[in-house]
């Protein structure tokens, strides 16, 4: 039941928008100079529906971060097309918080608001609102180094949301956090995703994280990165990793992922 392939009826909040939030079509990416080229992504096609939460799951070397960089526009694909309709620059959250240490938490968010073109008078209020959203109401004037790892990632999330993009890309944003904090932030992210109706493309190597968060899990094989399998998850949120459905699906996907990894040991 949890692996049922549903068509275009996302279980989460749908957004009044037309077309997908991201359309990745037959994308390939090679690195290196001619002669000694390394194929990192091979013919990857993924659509992210408006308001959908998709995780890209894979072992190292599957090119999942590369794919995210391509969608973010930090790099160009070697073949294929990437469309992010609306002409907006997608927001991207990194594994490291990537907040600017010369600015306070609030000013970090305000910089993103400024780049979005928000008038000066509105920035402060909007930054405060976003900090409230990630439950850091009192952190406006805090310096980055005064915040804990979890708080930094929440400010980084607020800064990403400040871009007001329809698409939020997340590159293993919780991988560097301790397990307790990570669990809490999973619940927070689910809450915020529900409230903001933003589309999320989330990269991870953590199966439980993928299953806990996503409506759709895309398993990628490594070297070159290809789409190996896909699961649509209609277990309602909030999910707990101990729930039978969630645990069973995690086991199934883990088996599949290990199978993908084993293939590489054979030659």
């Amino acid at each position: 039941m949890s692996t049922a392939i549903t068509d275009d009826a996302p279980a989460g909040p749908a957004q009044a928008g037309d077309g997908p939030a991201a359309r990745i079509t037959h994308v390939s990416k090679t690195f290196g100079r001619p002669g000694e080229q390394l194929l990192v992504l091979d013919d990857v096609t993924v659509d992210v529906a408006p308001g959908e939460f998709v995780t890209l799951l894979g072992a190292s070397g599957c090119g999942k971060s590369t794919l995210l960089n391509l969608v973010a526009g930090l790099d160009a694909p070697s073949a294929g097309t990437i469309e992010v309709p609306g002409g907006q620059r997608p927001a991207l959250m990194f594994q490291e918080h990537a907040l600017f240490p010369w600015l306070t938490a609030g000013k970090n968010i305000e910089l993103a608001l400024k780049m979005r073109g928000l008038a000066k008078a509105e920035r402060r209020t909007e930054a405060e609102r976003l900090l409230e959203l990630v439950r850091l109401g009192g952190a406006y004037g805090k310096r980055v180094h005064e915040l804990s790892g979890g708080m930094r990632q929440r400010v980084a999330l607020a800064r990403s949301l400040a871009q007001d993009s329809r698409l939020l890309l997340m590159d293993e944003p919780f991988a560097a956090l301790d397990a307790i904090t990570r669990d809490v932030l999973h619940d927070e992210l689910t809450r915020i995703w529900t409230e903001t109706k933003v589309s999320v493309l989330f990269v991870t190597h953590n199966v439980r994280e993928a299953v806990k968060l996503a409506q759709r899990v895309i398993l990628m094989s490594s070297r070159p990165g290809r789409i190996a399998r896909e699961w649509t998850i209609d277990i309602p949120q909030p999910r707990r990793i101990e729930d039978t459905d969630v645990a069973n699906l995690s086991l199934e996907i883990t088996e599949e992922l290990r199978g993908e990894i084993r293939r590489h040991g054979k030659h």
């Binding site: 279980a11 989460g12 909040p13 439950r135 850091l136 005064e146 915040l147 804990s148 790892g149 979890g150 708080m151 307790i180 904090t181 809490v184 619940d187 927070e188 689910t190 809450r191 529900t194 309602p236 949120q237 909030p238």
Partner: peptide, 24 residues
């Protein structure tokens, strides 16, 4: 689907506040 209960949400906020205080 997708709506955390009020109590659940409050519990989460409390947990988070505790973590923040411990880590700061």
């Amino acid at each position: 689907t997708g709506t955390a209960g009020g109590e659940d949400s409050a519990g989460l906020a409390g947990l988070e506040a505790g973590l923040d205080a411990l880590d700061t």
